[in-house]
Amino acid sequence: MKQNVKTKIEISDLKVHYGNKPALNGISFDVYENEILGIIGPAQSGKTTLLKVINRTLEFTADATVEGSVKLDGVDVSTIGDVYGLRRKIGMVLPLPVGLPLSIYDNVAFAPRTAGLRNKAELDEIVERCLQQAALWDEVKDRLNALGTKLSGGQQQRLTIARALSHQPEILCLDEFSIAVDPITTMRIEEVLKMLSTEAKMTIMLVTNLVQQAKRLANRTAFFLNGNLIEIDTTDVIFSENPANQITYDYVNGNFG
């Protein structure tokens, strides 16, 4: 692990309840700048909930309550007045591909436009760059006016990634992005993520059900279980013969349960 790392996100004693049902039970850890952090864990362990706290979209769930703090660059996100600006600092890719019912161009230009950008040349530049970064440009450059919803599932997921990059986020969160995507597309997207990490110096949080994906990509990996952070360490340690917890070993080696 690199020495002298800078903390990008600082999570301390984060508790989330849906009604009285706990989803996260007081977790604390840091996300370092420019790392790829893998987050693994079985269903219901609170991974998606964690991402929603960070970009504050959990606020759309009426009965969810949050205690503890999430700090982005040292600022508690819950105190940020411009929540829309906060969300644009974070690119979010959800499990199922969502092409908005707009043209491919308008899909990618959506976020810059909602942020107030009107200049056609700048929008053109953003659309091309993001589609390039998401490895979709070559397939769609001749039909940018076609509907995003009519692309194949794998293409729509890359469109979703292009959209998430369109507002120049500092952090990219991916929530099981490969769930509805074929293995080849998955590999292409993984290449894209490596490139974003090395070239664009992005901080990436990669929630995944495929432990091998975390092993392939992540610098560090966190293992969640039932709303608890069991352990977080360098990916090498998590996938070694002796991580700190036996249960981590069992989970990553598939003899869990």
């Binding site: 979209t57 759309f60 829309y84 969300r87 979010m92 969502v98 909602t114 959209r163 507002h167």
Partner: peptide, 16 residues
């Protein structure tokens, strides 16, 4: 609902 969630994640307001 997934369309709305996608928009909110992009920093769009409810009205947008």
């Amino acid at each position: 609902m997934s369309f709305r969630e996608a928009c909110w994640n992009l920093g769009a307001t409810r009205w947008q």
